[in-house]
C-alpha cells in the first residue's frame, strides 16, 4: 500500500518518488498521463502531458509535451539510478471530450497525444505494459508504485485497474 499521502501531478507537470507514495493526476481529457516505474530501485514517476510535440522555440515547459516530457523524465530517472531496460510504462488519457463535427485539430489532439506517447516510448526502448486510452470520457489516474497498479476513475463508469 501507499504511504497514505498522495502526490498530485498538475497539468503539464511531472513528479517522481522513491518513497512509495501514491501518484495521482486528475481529469485527464485529451491529455495523457504516463506512469513510469523502475521496480528495482523503486523509483516511480508520473507525467501529465497536454500536447504531442514540442515545436516551440525557447520554451521551458518541457512537461507540457509528450516528446520532451517523457525524455526529460527518463533522464531524471536515470540520474537517480533507474535503468531504461527495467522501466515500464502505463498510459491513460487521450480522450475526445467533445464530439465536434468537422473540426480538424481539436478533435484529434487526444489521438495525436496517444500516438506521440507510443512513438516516444518505443524510440526510448520503454516497455508499455498497459494502457486505457481514447474514448470520450475524462479519467483520473492514480498509480501505486508499491504494487505497480494504476487505477482509472471516470464519471459514470466502473474503475479500471491496469
Amino acid at each position: 500500500m501507499a504511504n497514505g499521502s498522495k502526490i498530485v501531478i498538475g497539468i503539464a507537470d511531472m513528479k517522481m518518488t522513491n518513497q512509495g507514495s501514491e501518484l495521482i493526476t486528475y481529469a485527464l481529457g485529451s491529455c495523457c498521463g504516463i506512469c513510469l516505474l523502475d521496480p528495482n530501485v523503486r523509483l516511480a514517476a508520473m507525467i501529465h502531458i497536454m500536447l504531442p510535440l514540442n515545436m516551440e522555440a525557447g520554451r521551458t515547459n518541457t512537461m507540457k509535451y509528450a516528446d520532451t516530457g517523457i525524455r526529460e523524465t527518463l533522464k531524471q530517472m536515470e540520474a537517480r539510478g533507474a535503468r531504461k531496460a527495467r522501466i515500464t510504462a502505463k498510459v491513460a488519457g487521450g480522450a475526445k471530450m467533445f464530439a465536434v463535427s468537422g473540426s480538424g485539430a481539436l478533435g484529434n489532439i487526444g489521438q495525436r497525444n496517444i500516438e506521440s506517447v507510443h512513438k516516444v516510448l518505443k524510440a526510448e526502448g520503454i516497455r508499455l505494459i498497459a494502457e486505457d486510452v481514447g474514448g470520450s470520457v475524462a479519467r483520473t489516474l492514480s498509480f501505486d508504485p508499491a504494487t505497480g497498479k494504476a487505477t482509472i476513475k471516470s464519471y459514470g463508469k466502473q474503475d479500471i485497474i491496469l
Partner: peptide
C-alpha cells in the same frame, strides 16, 4: 464530464 477535462479543451487548443 469532469470540469477539469472540459477546461483543458481550450488549453490544449492554444497550449502550443
Amino acid at each position: 464530464d469532469m470540469q477539469g477535462a472540459i477546461l483543458t479543451v481550450p488549453m490544449a487548443e492554444y497550449g502550443g
